[in-house]
Design a binder for these strands. Structure first.
Lengths: 305, 305
DNA sequence: TGAGGGCATAAGCTGGTCTTATGAGCGAGG
DNA sequence: CCTCGCTCATAAGACCAGCTTATGCCCTCA
């Protein structure tokens, strides 16, 4: 295997510095000194120096200009730092979610959420909540709408989030955001070159890659098309549906929350549709009469925009 | 320091599994077996078993159900895997950018781009290009519009991307995307509770946190307001401006590309404005007469949507 | 002209993580 | 019915990366 091939094959982890190094780089960017950054992240100055140096060796790019008066980022370093920030932010969202998942028992705020919301929205909200109320421990239970309702009514959760068409009985709700299902295909699909929007009839007549019946996404689509959606393949996870669509197996209908990344990288393209309403409300829910208070109220207010 | 405090204080890197572990988890999710995932990432099965186990210990959550016939994700595991995927995607963008930055000399496609585009859009495009043409090595040079023009005219770059109001002389261009400047404040700013859009006059009358004069963002704002923008503070990087706005120092005007993350986490909120056009075109540019061919043409086609 | 902050280098230790080797559970097929 | 093949878990040992401590040099500022 040539060196170039080996580089191409090696996993990301071998080519991307670890999180500690990225955090250190952000600290250097902010503080303007290796030593100060070292103190902030709790290591010694030589360790920081070595870490930054090995990161530069790994990337093949000089990141900081060292001088006896401090260190400043190079132009390349400024770019790398911005990309690093996004990795660190994704890691922070991961951490916020994982933390909520861990604190199943004894936390002060227990949230139950449907999958799509738990996946794409909750980590951001939890980070925001953590910024305002660092001492609030939040636990997360994920499930479908019925499960969320059950947890709330049994007193096992304080606040719920659902994405269905209707509000389960016994619960009050508030719309906190809107989601939209969009038709997507691989960029080389014939639909990607259409000049006119797809009609509802065309969509209903075409076999689609879909989530299984009963999923929130499928419910909305079936309702919008009058129960007529034709499945080409039915898959049980959003991720599997996306992968199938990206590979060119056919058109799919997915939440816009789920495909932001794919659209911006053009692994998928969005196909305009006319004559059919694919909007759905995302709602916060709570047992009728038990208006959210304390941390639940705080979280709720963070989600409204 | 109590254990809880220590946990809260410890850096992300101590609480988030490293990239190799996250990639392994994605492989397990996709392949349904620890052993198969181990083979795919090039380690032995016991190493994979141990890695997953230590990740579960670290997160305090069971991620996979092991059985003699394979391993499936638990519900919590499915969520964690989705969050992990976002971290890995950010790392892939980091890698694509860093790779382009490294290949300064001898690569087949040399791209020059202004900072905003290099920061927020190019890594995604490079990933898409890499997916279609894995053998194309791309190099990236970042600078302002004048620098991009200079590199193109000197033959030191094959394709450029600029975000200014005008196209530098000697270059042809194509609009590839649109950007919009938006007014943002911290969520607790009075403007966040307005019911009516801001007027141009109000915006012009208010001291703002801004990039320095000469930056692309500032040019567009000054032009839109007729050169009237009142700076409260002038900072030299988008990141510094964002940090200042998040901390509540005052309202700011930034590219929507730069504040997506902050908006979705509600560290900033967007304030509607009326009576002023803050749109700007993002353009691909090349020396007049030298229409992009080969990989440059390919990259260009990827950016059009 | 010292004092202090900034960075680099060297030496030694520590700890995590890999590999190899092995065992045990479950299912399919000769 | 028994064995093969797949799964995962455990144990023991090797290895390597990264940290700390202890220096030294450079530059600036008082």
């Amino acid at each position: 295997m040539s060196e170039a091939e080996e580089q191409r094959t090696a996993s990301l982890a071998h080519r991307v510095p670890d999180l500690a190094a990225l955090e250190l780089l952000l600290a250097v960017a902010r503080l303007g000194s290796l030593g100060a950054a070292a103190r902030e992240v709790g290591i010694t100055q030589p360790a920081a120096s070595s870490r930054i140096r090995s990161m530069e060796r790994q990337l093949g790019v000089a990141l900081v200009d060292r001088s006896p008066r401090g260190s400043r980022l190079t132009d390349a370093g400024a770019l790398v730092t911005d990309w690093a920030r996004r990795v660190v932010e994704a890691a922070a969202a991961f951490d916020a979610g994982a933390r909520a998942l861990r604190d199943q028992r004894d936390s002060r705020l227990r949230v139950a959420a449907s999958m799509t919301i738990a996946e794409y929205l909750l980590p951001g909200w939890l980070l925001a909540l953590h910024a305002e109320r660092p001492d609030t421990a939040v636990s997360l239970l994920a499930g479908n709408s019925a499960k969320v309702a059950e947890l709330l009514l049994a007193g096992d959760a304080d606040l719920g989030f659902v994405e269905g068409l209707s509000v389960p009985p016994g619960l009050d709700s508030a719309v906190i955001a809107h989601d939209r299902l969009i038709v997507v295909t691989a960029p080389d699909h014939a639909w990607a070159r259409r000049r006119r929007p797809l009609t509802a009839a065309e969509l209903a007549a075409t076999p689609l890659i879909l989530r299984e019946r009963g999923s929130g996404t499928r419910q909305v689509l079936d309702a919008a098309l009058g129960g007529l959606a034709r499945p080409m393949i039915e898959l049980s996870s959003t991720t599997a549906v996306k992968a199938s669509a990206v590979s060119g197996a056919g058109p799919s209908v997915l939440s816009e929350l789920a495909v932001g990344e794919e659209l911006s990288m053009r692994r998928l393209v969005s196909i305009p549709v006319e004559g059919v309403s694919l909007h759905r409300d995302l709602r916060a829910v709570w047992p009728t009469g038990h208006r959210p208070t304390g941390p639940a109220r705080e979280l709720l207010s963070l989600t409204r925009g």
